[in-house]
Design a binder for these strands. Structure first.
Length: 473
DNA sequence: CTATGGCACGGATT
DNA sequence: AATCCGTGCCATAG
């Protein structure tokens, strides 16, 4: 058994321990499923209505004032605002008002699937930026996607069918293509690759010839004809192969076949499904120097409590039922307690995490601080495995809209890798690995030459000798 | 002789 | 207990 000692909750039966661990390691989607199951067959449980903040409309799980609005705005950055909110408004903001949009109830409701389908997943992301009158367009496009996430119908058909201008259609389509999975809604694998490359180039080094390789050598690329591809681009077959390798490992011609599903380990869920974030991180009033707002999404519409009527009924229950009802009551109690504890742990975790990684969240990969689960465990005075469970499988949505697995907060090498990308980007003449190593040491990063080489290839950057032959276009 | 990638080892992580 | 990651050593290519 794993020793867990969280503050505030003392009596710990084995059942309590076991359930705490299980709940902690669930994503909000999985949690919703099991809570709904319990609600359905346990009469002692009752769902309390959602409380909504009057000012900002957030739906809140707990009693008391809205942590975002009612808090006096002392811009103390160090202290993020962490609280639990429900996912409900997330859906309703997407769906209200248009019959073309997939209705709320049909999204997550359909039985077992703990996740939503591709159209819903994309819609969720673009909803905030979508004008009301553009929603039918988005719905039309999204429902026309094929299994690969590509759009097979013609654009003018949409514009004619819905009586809207091509401009609008293109605008919406552009939004869609730039959301996860990037390139979704393209009309061909080639187009999808181009968009992905474009987006990737904003945050990463990409081989200069990759774009031409896709644009002009697409058919050679897909057939692995590296020598011909090299000919076309004026480079050797080996170099062409490296480019092809970069493309195949960083880009995905069929955005619908999700990489995303496989990101979550240990899950049998099929790769065609997408997941909600478990955590939303945003800034207050879009001000960069304000505290971070961290919402831990709860999968259910309200908060759970013991049904008062049930408790009364228990007192004069028929003989043969008392035992069963008593069990139900205890089970319900346990669930509520454990849920509270889960929220508690998540909140503590996110508090520290956002404090430590504030710069990473706001300014990107370069500012990632190396962090280990073990060190967090010490700070929070919990067992390592608690942190592990709390982190594993969960995803967060950053203020800039990126979805990342929570485990990325613990990626030790990310900052160094980004630094390497930048060094290479700004280099005058190609630097060798040992030169890069020296530069990193000056910046205070203690890494070995061999490691730099590994990172470099991880980022798809060619070796120094090969780099200088390829003039940037 | 130098820069790089492969293999393998030990320590951290899960 | 199994796996991942950084690193050192060594062979190879240029």
């Amino acid at each position: 058994m794993y020793p867990i000692h969280l503050q505030q909750i003392r009596p710990q039966t084995t059942a309590h321990l076991a359930q705490t661990m299980t709940l902690l390691s669930m994503t909000s989607n999985e949690l919703r499923q099991s809570i709904e199951a319990e609600l359905a067959n346990n009469p002692a449980l009752e769902l309390l209505e959602v409380k909504r903040c009057r000012t900002c409309g957030r739906s809140l799980m707990e009693n008391g004032p809205c942590p975002v609005c009612s808090r006096p705005h002392d811009p103390n950055q160090a202290e993020p605002i962490v609280f639990t909110s429900t996912q409900q408004d997330y859906f309703s903001s997407v769906s209200n008002g248009s019959q073309h949009i997939i209705p709320v109830d049909e999204l997550p409701e359909d039985n077992v699937a703990p996740s939503i389908d591709l159209p819903g997943f994309v819609l969720q992301q673009i909803a905030p930026e979508l004008e009301l009158e553009d929603r039918p367009i988005a719905a039309h496009i999204l429902t026309s996607l094929d299994d690969d996430g590509l759009l097979q119908i013609q654009l003018f058909e949409i514009s004619r069918y819905l009586h809207v201008s091509m401009e609008r259609v293109n605008h919406v389509l552009d939004l869609i293509r730039r959301s996860e999975p990037i390139g979704v809604g393209s009309s061909s694998p080639q187009e999808a690759l181009m968009i992905q490359l474009d987006i990737l180039a904003k945050t990463q080094y990409v081989p200069p010839l990759a774009e031409r390789a896709i644009r002009e050598g697409m058919n050679l690329l897909s057939r692995h004809h590296y020598s011909k591809l090299g000919e076309l681009l004026g480079i050797t077959p080996q170099e062409a192969e490296i480019i092809a390798q970069f493309i195949s490992s960083n880009l995905n011609p069929y955005p619908g076949r999700a990489h995303w599903g496989s990101v979550r380990q240990g899950s049998e869920s099929n790769p065609h499904t997408y997941h909600h974030p478990d955590i939303l991180i945003s800034t207050l009033h879009q001000q960069a120097n304000s505290p971070l707002v961290v919402e831990i999404l709860s999968p259910i519409r309200g908060s759970l409590q013991i049904n008062a009527l049930f408790r009364k009924a228990l007192k004069n229950a028929p003989e043969e039922k008392t035992e069963k009802w008593q069990q139900d009551l205890e089970k319900a109690n346990l669930l509520i307690k454990c849920l509270r504890q889960r929220g508690n742990t998540m909140r503590q975790l996110m508090t520290i995490l956002t404090q430590e990684q504030r710069n990473f969240i706001l300014q990107g990969d370069k500012f990632m601080r190396p962090l280990t689960r073990a060190s967090l465990a010490i700070q929070l005075d919990v067992h390592e495995s608690t942190i592990s469970r709390a982190v594993s499988g969960k995803t967060a949505r950053l203020p800039n809209g990126r979805m990342i697995p929570l485990s990325k907060f613990f990626d030790r090498s990310l900052s160094v890798r980004t630094l390497i990308r930048e060094i290479v980007k700004h280099e005058v003449s190609p630097l060798t690995d040992s030169q890069i190593t020296r530069m990193l040491h000056k910046e205070g990063h203690q890494v070995a030459r061999r490691t730099v080489a590994k990172y470099r290839s991880m980022e798809g950057i060619l070796p120094a000798q090969t780099r200088h032959k390829l003039p940037s276009p």
